Simulated assay, not measured.
Amino acid sequence: MATPDFIKDLRAFAGHRLLLLPGVTAVVLDDDDRVLLMRRVDDGRWALIGGIAEPGEQPAVTAVREVREETGVECVAERVVMVEAQPEPVTYPNGDQCQYTDIVFRCRATGGEARVNDDEALDVGWFPVDALPKLHESQLFRIKQARADEPTWFSTTPSH
């Protein structure tokens, strides 16, 4: 997983201390209501596509960029599905700590061929909603919210 240069610069000052970072997740659907997933290099699990916004980058632009970079699929962001602060910080093997605020977008595929397009994915594929591979519960919730005709979901429960 490539760490963005601006985070490397921050780490030079912050060391392994906790960084709060803006993240996005894209729930990409095609015309057959299939979901685009990637199997991650870092843990081998299937997941939705996501990443960290670059400084000054609009979150919807980040979602579209991450999908293209990681899977080769072109898409458009249709709406914000949910906004959620990750409940607990993540500590990476090198000791770096991060906590993400994630903006989840429902995206519609517009072109391209689903393929492994960078070093972050072992595999990429389209999956019918009733035949998804094993996914983390939070990923399933994001897919459910993206397919529902509901207002943007957000938590009103304090994290601590």
Rank of each mutant, 00 (worst) to 15 (best):
L36V: 12
I49P: 06
M38V: 12
R34Q: 14
R45W: 13
G44R: 07
T25D: 09
R45H: 15
E54L: 12
P55H: 08
G50L: 06
D32F: 10
E57H: 11
R45L: 12
R45T: 11
A26I: 04
M38D: 09
V24D: 01
P55C: 05
D31I: 04
G44P: 10
R40H: 06
D33K: 11
V41T: 12
D43W: 05
L48R: 06
G51W: 02
R39I: 04
D32A: 14
L20K: 06
L29T: 13
L29R: 10
R34F: 08
A26F: 10
A53I: 00
G51N: 09
W46T: 01
M38F: 12
V41A: 09
V35R: 00
G51A: 11
V61A: 15
D43F: 04
D32E: 15
A60Q: 11
D32R: 14
P59G: 08
W46N: 01
R40F: 01
V61P: 01
R34V: 08
L37Q: 03
E54P: 01
R45F: 10
L37G: 06
I52S: 03
D33R: 14
P22D: 15
G44C: 09
T25I: 13
R40Y: 03
P55K: 05
L20S: 10
G23H: 07
V35M: 05
P59Y: 03
L29V: 14
T25L: 09
V24T: 11
D31V: 07
G23I: 00
G51M: 04
V27D: 04
L37V: 07
D42H: 14
M38P: 07
G44D: 10
A26Y: 08
G51Y: 03
Q58D: 15
R40W: 05
R40T: 08
V35F: 04
L48G: 12
E57P: 10
V24Q: 00
V24G: 00
G50S: 12
R39G: 06
D33L: 13
W46V: 01
L48D: 04
G23V: 00
G51I: 03
L36R: 05
L37F: 13
L29W: 05
A26W: 10
V35P: 02
R34E: 13
I52T: 11
D32I: 01
D42P: 01
A53W: 00
A26M: 09
D30M: 08
I49H: 06
D32L: 13
Q58E: 15
L37K: 03
R39W: 11
V24A: 01
G51H: 04
M38W: 04
P22Q: 11
P22C: 02
L48E: 08
M38A: 14
R34C: 14
E54I: 00
L29N: 04
A47P: 02
T25H: 07
L36K: 07
T25Y: 02
V35S: 01
G51D: 08
A60M: 11
A47L: 05
V61K: 08
T25P: 02
A47W: 06
A53Y: 00
Q58W: 10
L21G: 04
A26L: 10
D33H: 14
D33P: 08
G44Q: 08
E57G: 09
G44W: 03
I52W: 05
L37S: 06
V41M: 05
L48I: 11
D42W: 06
G23F: 05
D30L: 10
P22Y: 01
A47F: 09
A53S: 15
E54Y: 07
G23R: 01
G50H: 05
